[in-house]
Design a binder for these strands. Sequence first.
RNA 1: GGAGGGGUAGCGAAGUGGUCAAACGCGGCAGACUGUAAAUCUGUUCCUUCGGGUUCUAUGGUUCAAAUCCAUAUCCCUCCA
Length: 375
Amino acid sequence: MRLEYKLKQKSKKNMARLGEFTYNGKVYKTPMFMPVGTNATVKTLAPEEIKEIGCGIILANTYHLWLRPGEDIVAKAGGLHKFMNYDGPILTDSGGYQVFSLARPKDITEEGVHFKNHENGDKLFLTPEKSIEIQQKLGSDIVMSFDECVKWPSTHEYMEKSVERTLNWAKRGKSVFKRDDQMLFGIVQGGEYEDLRRHCAEELTKMDFDGYSVGGTSVGEDKPTMYKMVSYATKYLPEDKLRYLMGVGDPIDLIENVMRGIDLFDCVSPTRLARHGHAYTKHGKINLKNSKYKEDFTPVEDGCDCYACKNYTKAYIRHLITADETFGARLLSIHNITFLTKLMEEIRNNIESDTLEEFRDKFIIDYYGENYEYK
RNA sequence: GGAGGGGUAGCGAAGUGGUCAAACGCGGCAGACUGUAAAUCUGUUCCUUCGGGUUCUAUGGUUCAAAUCCAUAUCCCUCCA
């Protein structure tokens, strides 16, 4: 079934918006945080746990599933949902981020991108058409255009060329996109340059995608720059379509970018930080590996009703992480995803009452302290 | 009783006259992580008032110089009786 987005309410003070979509008979609300499950699994978690936490959409990755097990096997299994036993909505990234993380500049051509398989060194070539075809076989609900995620900083000159390429790739991908039960998103690039972001957003809008992403952020830039990048894109995107900010998950960035008109976020942080022993709390991020938690028999966060906090102590989780036991990573993943999911719920409530700015100011003091500076 | 091997930092283990406060691994203590080449990576780990001080089982010796060579003691391991 195809997911249909409805814009429900807009803030009068900023660009924040409330919206919803129905999927499989269930109503999901935006803004929303989407956990990342690159290899068709949110690392260490069972689908039941993800649903229990209250997550909506989860991500999987075209590049990784293309290499292993291969999109044909997923299709034979009956599609990604059946293959991984997740009946909630799934978004697939196109491989565009792997252009940033795995390819070298000389690997990127107008036709597509050359990769070296990171597992065995095989030579690979991914094109926009191929990316969309793979995603159609995977059968995700939201398909991303293949784009060039560009490093920061980049010159206006390079970015201009790159934006044309991303637009061209978006068009080529759209031309082979056939399934009517999937949505296809275009991705706005353009770095920190307003003219390029605007041009990209307007051209994509002309092509009429089902939703739009903002890409090329969280690649090393400072926060004020990221927020500018987002504003330069959302300003020129249609209001009635979903907007997805790719790869952003720092708690304050979720709030700030909702205020700039973003509906969807994804980030590996909650699960990766969990594997490395870190936990989000209202009073900032803590590192459970620190020796001060050795005899701390209180939950990771007082008042949190996640499975980890209801049943286990910091001392125990610290022990698990220290002993390299996967259960520790699982407990912290549950906690961290719960934290961001709850944060999004609070953000939605504050959009409804149009008090998001006050909420942000209080959140910053609690999480980062009085003297926080954006950087 | 005889023959041989060995004791190096919290642990394991290199080093066999100067470039050694001593490789490397583990453990410890911290840090990073943003559309996952990430259960990974980085720093640090004798003491210090940052000038320096004290180390390689112990004591004595050789030498300009010793973890390294010699003597004795001591502890551990292997084999033979």
